[in-house]
Design a protein around this nucleic acid. Structure first.
Length: 193
DNA sequence: GTTCTAGAAC
DNA sequence: GTTCTAGAAC
């Protein structure tokens, strides 16, 4: 092997390693410690960095990268997502929400199931907050309806993506508008005690 | 997705 | 001087 190809191999390996984070969910799906429930077509895992007291992910066993790969053949799969959401909801006292990020960071389709408290040490940034409290969080019911009616999920524009994540901070339980994240987190903590 | 950290904001 | 945010990561 030439010196050049050796160098290429080395840099490719580094590049792969540094970009493999986006496939982290595929590993988590195989990890018994993170698995909550498993069915023929789906797996439910605990989110590794939960943004609320309850935060799970529902994923398909099949290699589907995102909601934008869904078509009419996946209506049954999404119905199972809804069924699993109901099952999790019935196991807890608080109201949960289920939905998808409009622009997901991680490959492999995943539906968030999350409680409304938003109390968690892993909730740190404005992007974290806005990705669960603005329209960036596409509710399961709306995604399911869109898939049934249109046979696909429409992507949001880069402009809308940017503006949703830049939305000014606003409590999800009252009208309070915190100045920064530490203030929001303290406020959420008080809501919960 | 997170981590790290420069420099903005206070 | 300290807190906080936002962008790079080869």
């Amino acid at each position: 092997m030439s010196k050049r190809s050796l160098n290429n191999t080395s840099s490719n390996t580094k590049a792969k390693k540094s970009k493999y984070w986006s496939l982290g969910l595929v590993d988590a799906m195989k990890n018994p410690d993170s698995i909550v429930k498993k069915t023929e077509h789906c797996v439910i895992i605990k989110d590794k960095y939960p943004k609320a007291k309850i935060h799970y992910l529902v994923l398909p066993q099949d290699n589907i990268s995102s909601i934008y790969m869904l078509n009419r053949s996946h209506v049954k799969l999404i119905e199972e997502f809804g069924k699993l959401f109901k099952e999790i909801q019935d196991e807890v006292e608080v109201t949960l929400r289920a939905g998808f990020h409009a622009v997901p960071s991680m490959q492999r389709l995943h539906m968030h199931i999350i409680s409304g408290d938003m109390v968690s040490p892993c909730l740190k940034t404005k992007v974290h907050w806005n990705s669960f409290t603005t329209d960036f969080f596409m509710l399961f019911e709306d995604v399911q309806q869109q898939l049934k009616e249109n046979g696909s999920i429409k992507k949001i524009s880069p402009e809308l993506h940017k503006s949703l994540l830049a939305t000014e901070l606003q409590c999800n339980q009252c009208l309070f508008k915190p100045k920064n994240m530490p203030q929001l987190k303290e406020h959420l903590f008080i809501h919960n005690k």
